[in-house]
Design a protein around this nucleic acid. Structure first.
Lengths: 228, 228
DNA sequence: CTTTGGTTAATAGTAATACTATCATATACG
DNA sequence: CGTATATGATAGTATTACTATTAACCAAAG
């Protein structure tokens, strides 16, 4: 795959001012990704980021309402990127089993800078997704955030995979549930392999992304075939 | 089942002073559970709790290092409670399939005050587990916390279920991974049914706990039988 | 060439949070 | 009775997550 660059149209509620439009915006997003992946979201502040990009807190606040929104924005970009890759990889495939395998490969594999954003380090972004994704919806404002469309990208991928499952087995009753379970497992199992090793056979010293793919493929094909 | 009361020996690192030993300790834990389930963990502070129990911040800090530790403590109690119930329900069962079903029922079902803690509202505690569990390990200190045994209870349940799976199918390669995936799904799917409905078929207006049980049972039996 | 609009920097300030420290009082226990 | 322990009362601190104001800069429009 040739390296191409992406520019996304994301939900307008994800930001106050589109960071893709300005130099400062790109630095906020690019260095923000690095900083969060380095020190973790809890320790991250706009103050620290402003020092890193030689700007000010107030300037960052003009792009994002607060640090939570920045996190949601970054992760939305990740899922938009994943969705694009699923479309790309499944394009022209006819056999639904092949489509599903291709999609599964995309959601489980290590981030690679094939299709990329100009200013974002995809490896760092994937690290954020692994460690912080669940925090975007595990909040009191989840319903409001959901209502203004902040989670559209994630839901869209879930539906996409669910639809492929239904092509394979139209009678399967839990395609959405299985799809979201797999999406969650795609980062959770990697996290466990790094930090809570007894919770998984996946081994961070081997090729955890590949192992996770195999685990999930096993789960999937059995679940779908059995009910056929 | 007759109502019985539990007193647990939890890891000493979960608290500074054992809250089960004193009146104040029990109020911290009991009212803390209520308050977190009401306002969410982010909005929760020791200040607010101290007002609610007519005590002081400083007194609460004598029991728990910080609010994160209190959350870890509460959730550890939940999983210890679940583990006890699994042991109780699987006791004397011989057929591993039956054991697995019984365990699955325990981890998926709505909290009931059958086997109980004196001061804790199990319904509120389960609400906390559904909304906050992942926050106990999605932190920068996860490795240190893990090292001092804060997550022992969760890991123990994961192993227990995994072992039953291996009784059914000794050749299954992903028993730990599947077990942790199901444990995570046991609260995640309920959360989705309440807040991000398009991510699951489980319907919060029906009997979501029962539906979740059926979803997970489907997953499980297919995964285990296929590889037999 | 000047005005204007838009972007950013600089600075200051605030309420709340997450603690820590100190001291006095109550109570319990041996 | 004396002493250890638990709690309460109070105060204080560094940091966080913002908000507000003003001034400087720059590009395009008139």
């Amino acid at each position: 795959m040739t390296a191409i660059q992406l520019r996304l149209d994301l939900n307008k509620n994800l930001f106050l001012r589109d960071p893709q439009n300005t130099e400062l915006g790109k630095r906020i997003v690019g260095e923000g990704t690095q900083l969060i992946s380095e020190i973790g979201f809890e320790g991250f502040t706009f103050k620290k980021l402003s020092e890193r990009i030689s700007s000010t807190e107030a300037s960052i606040y003009r792009y994002f309402e607060n640090k939570h929104r920045l996190l949601v924005y970054l992760i939305a970009r990740y899922w938009a990127w994943i969705e694009f890759k699923i479309d790309y990889e499944t394009n022209n495939l006819i056999v639904p089993q092949e489509k599903l395998e291709a999609a599964l490969r995309v959601i489980t594999h290590r981030a690679q800078a094939d299709i990329t954003f100009p200013e974002i380090d995809e490896g760092a972004l994937q690290k954020i997704v692994i460690a912080e994704t669940d925090k975007i919806y595990l909040t009191k404002q989840v319903d409001q955030d959901n209502q203004v469309g902040l989670f559209k990208g994630y839901k869209s991928i879930c539906k996409k995979i669910s639809d492929i499952m239904l092509e394979i087995n139209p009678g399967f009753k839990y395609s959405r549930a299985l799809s979201s379970t797999l999406l969650e497992a795609s980062h959770q199992q990697i996290f466990f392999s790094q930090h809570l090793k007894s919770l998984t056979e996946i081994d961070a010293n081997g090729d955890p992304f590949q192992q996770n793919y195999e685990f999930m493929k096993t789960l999937l094909s059995n679940a779908l075939n059995a009910e056929a």
